[in-house]
Design a protein around this nucleic acid. Structure first.
Lengths: 153, 153
DNA sequence: TTGATTTGGTTTCTTAATGCAACCTTTTCC
DNA sequence: GGAAAAGGTTGCATTAAGAAACCAAATCAA
């Protein structure tokens, strides 16, 4: 029984989860955002098994999230670097970090700050076209025909 | 061999993924944000197996993301509603949606709009304290002691 | 040039998770 | 009371995850 595919579910979120929705992928991406590029550094930084790391790196490369570049030095043959698509997941990673810190407390060894000012960054929020903050209650899901669907409560 | 725990990895992202990081949880939450509350509606809306749905709903309730309230009508004994903690994942879901649409095209049957204006919402971005947009290159990861760590490239 | 070392990766095996179908229990409607 | 519906459990087959051992290419030290 193969795992269910999410990319034909008619949902962009499902499509995204099909690419980076397993247990390790987002952690690999977060580690890459920390500056990690080499296989062994991912392995030691995350404590992930080598075969799983191989599989995840290959899948992320296939999906265009990481790029594998040859940088041979002392047996080091490859570097895994974030692509533009991978760097664009920054918003997701930060939103997830902040959510976890808000509800589970800061269990992180490190903090995310503005590189030039050193100040902590603002909470990631959803805004409308005018820049006003929106919650899930302020939005509506409409079909392709413009028909509004049910809403959350 | 038990699956690796992420909550003692010294990383808030890992801690969050430990709660909502499996294949189905975020889809269940997204479905709940669409207004789905009943077991059968989750099942039909997502095409998920009943035992997996049971497990995910129970786990999300344990983690305080969903609340199970008794609303007995014709054998319908429970409703699963988002808590404040669950609703706060709105940012993550929207960021993931937008990322998928930017890089894989809109494969969604529905669109997210401002409920009152009907206009589509703005892209979710990371901002500093002054409200300026930040990319992953504009931030720094510092340890608890204030020491800066490596950065992405 | 030889040999140890490092990096990245594969193989093997055990355990856990997933998907599907069938069955069970309680409640409501008629 | 009986059918139906909602929510859930159980059993089984398949797949993924985790750990350790093994491998191959490149590099460095001698």
């Amino acid at each position: 029984m193969t795992r269910k595919r999410f990319d034909d579910l008619g949902c962009s979120v499902a499509c995204a989860l099909n690419e980076v929705g397993d247990w390790w992928s987002l952690l690999v991406i977060k580690q890459a955002m920390l500056g990690t590029r080499r296989f062994v550094d991912f392995q030691h930084g995350l404590g992930i098994a080598k075969n799983i790391l191989c599989d995840r790196l290959a899948r992320l490369v296939d999906n265009g999230v990481l790029a594998r570049v040859n940088a041979g030095e002392h047996g080091t043959r490859y570097e895994y670097r974030l692509t533009d698509k991978g760097r664009d997941l920054f918003t997701v990673v930060v939103a997830l970090r902040q959510w976890s810190e808000r509800w589970n407390g800061n269990r992180d060894d490190m903090q995310l700050v503005d590189r030039v000012t050193g100040a902590s960054i603002a909470p990631v929020v959803v805004r409308n076209a005018e820049g006003e903050t929106l919650t899930v209650r302020d939005v509506s899901f409409v079909g392709k025909d413009g028909q509004p669907l049910e809403r959350a409560g």
